[in-house]
């Protein structure tokens, strides 16, 4: 088995079975903040036990192992075609080993061939850079939280949302309200203001690669992130929508340019089972270090 194949299977295994430290810390804080003796607290306790169990048994945290999305940062002369071939092999093998559910369905025939391979599964985004390092990040995004994502076109008359920051705030908070507990909260929002219908969602998902505790370098977006987080947690939706103090663990917002006619706000929701890991590869494609 090639070193790259082995590294990628290990990346998939760990992504599926282990919550990254930054997210785990936020979940522990959330458990501590829930009122004792409530079903919200009980839900957080089960979540905590689940995280521990999945790690110990090296099995999926959640049975919906989600869309398999790779983000690869590589040198300019990197062989992307070979990488993609080996990635597909790694996904197939990880599925056979039970790190991934047989999760990819032909949209027309409804057939699931059990390999997790097909157009768009997995998805691999390549970004070249001038450094010699190769980094591979992986996000496994479950369907429950993907379904509560939303894209708003401003102005939005019903929500009184104009093409300004207050309008963005209104629609983002509407997305939180509409999601209730269905996205498996407490969750994390990734938001893109601007872009087109495709890039808006693409950039909103890339926000999940940020560390949960980081701060947005743009003071305007940073203020909006903090405001949405605080306000969402005052709504009382709580873990699983049971009512409670933690509705969101974090909010990450970016802005992309738009054409004058369009003003989209794209909101992606990540469940508490926030599966994201990354590796830096050495020259022999072995895992040099973990990124989260």
């Amino acid at each position: 088995m090639s070193a790259l194949l082995e590294s990628l299977i290990e990346l998939i295994r760990r992504s599926s079975a282990e919550i990254p430290d930054d997210v785990n810390e936020a979940l522990v804080r959330s458990l501590e903040s829930e009122k004792k003796g409530t079903i919200a607290e009980s839900a957080m306790r089960i979540i905590e036990r689940n995280i521990e169990l999945a790690k110990r048994k090296s099995q999926p945290i959640c049975q919906d192992t989600g869309s398999v999305i790779f983000y690869v940062t590589c040198p300019v002369d990197y062989d992307q075609l070979t990488f993609e071939e080996i990635t597909r092999e790694a996904v197939k093998e990880a599925t056979r080993k039970g790190f991934l559910r047989q999760n990819s369905v032909d949209s027309i025939t409804g057939k699931n061939d059990g390999t997790n391979l097909g157009l768009g599964s997995p998805t691999v985004h390549f970004h070249q850079h001038r450094s010699g390092e190769t980094e591979v990040r992986l996000v496994l995004k479950g369907g429950g939280c993907e379904n509560v994502g939303a894209q708003y076109s401003l102005p939005h008359e019903k929500l009184h949302a104009n093409r300004d920051l207050d309008g963005c705030r209104r629609v983002i908070l509407d997305a939180v309200l509409q999601a209730q507990g269905r996205g498996c909260g407490p969750g994390v929002l990734g938001v893109c203001i601007g872009g087109d219908r495709a890039t808006g969602f693409e950039f909103s998902k890339q926000q999940f690669l940020r560390m949960l505790g980081d701060r947005n370098p743009d003071p305007t977006l940073d203020a909006l992130e903090q405001d949405i987080l605080k306000t969402a947690n005052e709504l009382g939706i709580g873990p699983m929508g049971f009512g409670g103090r933690t509705t969101l663990l974090g909010v990450k917002i970016c802005a992309a340019n738009r054409v004058p006619a369009s003003y989209f706000v794209s909101v992606s929701y990540m469940c508490w089972a926030f599966r994201r890991q990354g590796i830096q590869l050495d020259a022999a494609s072995r895992i040099a270090r973990w990124l989260y």
Binding site: I46, N50, I61, C62, G144, M240, F242, W272
Partner: peptide
């Protein structure tokens, strides 16, 4: 309502 995402606790 079961706890969403708690696949291991529930599989046990």
């Amino acid at each position: 309502h079961a706890i969403g995402g708690a696949a291991q606790v529930l599989a046990e």
